[in-house]
Structures are given as C-alpha cells and as structure tokens.
Simulated assay, not measured.
Amino acid sequence: MAEDEAQVSPPDSLLQLIDNLARFHREHEEYYAQAPLRQAGDLQARSRALKALADRWSLIGVGEQASEIAFAGTEDLNAPGLVAESGILFMEGEGEPAELQRLKREIGLLAHDLEQTGVWLAEAMEQAWEMAGGLAAYPALADLLGERHRIIADDWQSAGLQTLIARLLRRALDLLARVDFAPAALRADLRGERTAPTYLYSASELLDRAADLMLESATLVHDNERRWRVFRARVRELRSA
C-alpha cells in the first residue's frame, strides 16, 4: 500500500477492533431496543393496579371488618376485577397483601438495574466519544463520522433516560411507603382524610412517566440499527481492500 493510501485508511488492527465493536454492540443494542418495551408494559400494569385501588378508595363507603374469619376477602377494600388481574387481595385480619409487597419489590429491583445500566452506559459513551474523535484522522471514514457520533449521542441520551427513570421509580416507592396497606389502617385513613388514594394516584403517575421514558429509550437505541449496519459495511469493505 502506498504511503498516501495508508494515511487515508485506518490500519487493519484498528479496523478489526471497530468491526468487533460494531458487531457486538449492534447485537447488544438489539436487546435494549426490545427489553424496555416489555418493562414499560409491566410498569403500566402496576400503575393500573394502583389507579384501580385509588379509584375504589376515593368513592367507597368504608365499612367495619366484614368477617371474623381470617383470610376472608374485604368487601370494601378490594377493587372490582383487580384480584383476578393482579392477584392483589386484601383479606380480613391480614396485613399488606403479599402481591403489593412483590409489586414494590420488583419496582425497586428495576430501579436498581436501570441506575446501574445508565451509569455504565454513560461511562462507555464517554470512552466511545473519544475513540470516535480519533477516527477523524482517516479520510476513508470521514463520511461515516456523523453516523458514528449519532449512535453515541443516542446511547448517551438513553443512559440519561435510564438514570431518570430509576429516580422516578424510587420516588414512586417513597410515596407508596407513606401508605399503611393493612386493612385496619386503610379503613381508619379512609374514614378520615383519605390520603391513601392521593398517594396511590401520584405514585401511579410517576410509573406512567417512567414507562413513557422507557419507550423513548427503546426508540433511541432502535434508531441506531441501520447506522451500525452502514458503519460496519464500510469497515469490512476497507478490510477486504
């Protein structure tokens, strides 16, 4: 290869590295273009459950304990249709339903995972940005630098969204922690100030916003798919040449 041609095209060792990154990071992003869609659907289902309870508790006339028999369903606190959909069942003589405890636990785990992923991805994009700047030295890749930087920008924005989503989920849990879900405590609240429904409505709105942002994150990552194909095709072309 002539000296001028060597300056135009990156060395094969660099092209091999770029090809590897383009291949595996494209596959990695295919997962993250789909996973948030499932997670958003799950969050929306949890939000609907909270809204159903809040709707019920905003209007219902609260009664006394309906039965002395342990594990009997509470006629006043259970929302119509919600038991079959979500499994959330308030029972006489019991405390907070196990299904509500699991709902909050799963939201907490999701927040933890998203926070970790967001931090990792932001750090990775910091390094990718520096590496992409170095590619400007090779004119053979000049027309693809926009594509590469757009991929990084989309992923960086997705990282920020994931960190924000984690914050929304944690704040929703803070609001839910304000509610004592034991039937006796709920009835006492609903006979008085009825703060439980308002906390549930606000927590559900935060879950809704988190779900919306998950969809935005998935859209950003999905937008990179064609860009990765174009970028990798050029790299493989240069390697074969």
Rank of each mutant, 00 (worst) to 15 (best):
E94C: 10
L173N: 07
Q16I: 00
P36G: 04
L50C: 02
D19V: 13
I107M: 11
E3C: 12
Q127C: 06
A72V: 07
L121R: 00
L43I: 07
R227P: 06
L21G: 09
R239K: 01
S9F: 09
W120N: 04
D189A: 09
T74Q: 10
D12G: 13
E126R: 11
L215P: 07
D4T: 06
A128Y: 04
E126S: 14
A153F: 08
R229G: 05
M91F: 09
P97Y: 03
D174M: 14
E106L: 08
M91Y: 06
R209N: 09
T117L: 06
M91P: 02
G63N: 04
D154F: 09
R56M: 13
A54E: 05
L141A: 01
V83W: 01
R102G: 03
T117F: 03
A45K: 07
N224Q: 11
A128H: 07
K51Y: 03
D19S: 15
A182E: 14
L200Y: 03
T74S: 15
A40M: 00
R48A: 11
R26D: 12
A140P: 10
E115V: 09
L190C: 14
I88D: 07
E3K: 12
L238H: 01
D12V: 15
L114P: 02
E94Y: 11
L215N: 12
M131I: 07
Q116W: 13
A84N: 04
N20S: 08
L17N: 15
R229S: 07
Q116C: 10
L43P: 04
L207I: 05
L100E: 05
V62M: 13
K104T: 07
P11L: 14
D113C: 04
E29F: 11
Q34H: 09
R194W: 12
Y32M: 13
E193F: 10
E115R: 13
A211H: 02
H112R: 13
L215E: 14
V235F: 12
E3N: 12
E147Q: 12
A124Y: 00
E64M: 01
G134T: 00
M125D: 05
I18A: 06
R178E: 00
S217D: 07
A6G: 00
L15F: 08
H112A: 14
L161P: 02
Y199W: 15
W156K: 04
L14C: 14
N224S: 08
A45S: 09
A218Y: 02
A211Y: 03
L121Y: 02
R239G: 01
E147A: 12
R236N: 00
E130Y: 09
V221K: 06
M125K: 03
R229A: 10
I69K: 01
P139H: 11
G192D: 11
A136W: 06
L200N: 02
I69M: 03
A79W: 03
E123K: 15
M131N: 05
D223S: 15
S9L: 10
D223M: 12
E130K: 13
K104H: 05
V83M: 08
A184M: 08
R232W: 07
S47K: 04
Q34D: 03
I88G: 07
A33N: 07
E147W: 05
R232E: 08
S9D: 12
W57M: 06
R209Y: 09
S202E: 04
G61V: 07
L206W: 00
D208K: 09
A54V: 03
S86Q: 02
L200E: 01
S240F: 08
A111D: 15
